[in-house]
């Protein structure tokens, strides 16, 4: 099959696969893991990935939050989720 057609067909398949992603839920989980406040109407939250794995961010979360606590004094980082 022509390469351009194969690329087009695979891109269509890719678009269908990623359309099912719960991007907002993923973002909420990331922010919670990093210790950033999330709006109350955010979707279901969880610290683990759908596969149930402990996440790298989870392990490093405490360390990162400790580092950012110092930076909040400078007005950078943190902040509530306002878009989505």
């Amino acid at each position: 099959m022509d390469l351009e057609k194969r690329l087009h067909r695979d891109a269509e398949s890719f678009a269908e696969e990623v359309a099912a992603f719960d991007t907002k839920g993923f973002l909420a989980r990331v922010l919670v893991t990093l210790g950033i406040p999330v709006q109350d109407d955010a979707p279901s939250l969880g610290a683990a990935s759908p596969a149930g794995r402990p996440t790298a961010a989870g392990r490093a979360g405490a360390e990162l939050r400790a580092g950012h606590d110092q930076d909040k004094d400078k007005g950078e980082g943190g902040g509530a989720l306002r878009a989505g």
Binding site: T23, F26, L27, V30, L31, I36, P37, E76, G77, G78, G79, A80, L81, R82, A83, G84
Partner: peptide, 10 residues
């Protein structure tokens, strides 16, 4: 802020 950037780029 990081959270806004993350929301726009996730």
């Amino acid at each position: 802020g990081f959270a806004v950037w993350a929301a726009e780029n996730t």
